[in-house]
Amino acid sequence: MNDRLAITLNVNGQSYPVTVEPRKSLADALREDCGLTGTHLGCEHGVCGACTVIVDGRPVRSCLMFAVQAEGLAVCTVEGLAEGEALHPLQRHFWEQHGLQCGFCTPGFLMLAAGAFEADPTIDEAEMIDVLSSNLCRCTGYQNIAKAVSLALQDMRAGV
């Protein structure tokens, strides 16, 4: 029991060889073992959504998945969203629409919306609003997040 396992995590297209206890969450492994601290941890029981990352094309709570379970799967975190200096449409519109204040929930919202679009590029605005109800924000009142995601959705559809 408690033996550490040597696994390789594939995050944002890069390989990260890590040695983890089975009980280590994917979120903790991303932050502590891969050094990718963009993924935030809030409630640690699947309610707040701050830790949302994309695993094999689907947005999931990385606090409810063990790192060992991600072995061999493609993980995408907020660090993988921008292409170099060019912000992802979601990041750009969050910035322009003031879709954040303290920023703690922001990586989760970005990966949630990016993942929902990746899972279903035909997702419409009403469905996306329902998706956004998955995560908590304590600053913005959600209106600016919804606005930013709606505008980004148009750009993502147009491939801008």
Partner: peptide, 12 residues
């Protein structure tokens, strides 16, 4: 299924 938890929970 719309009422089963939230979207990311429904993915897993």
């Amino acid at each position: 299924v719309e009422h089963v938890a939230h979207y990311p929970i429904r993915q897993r």
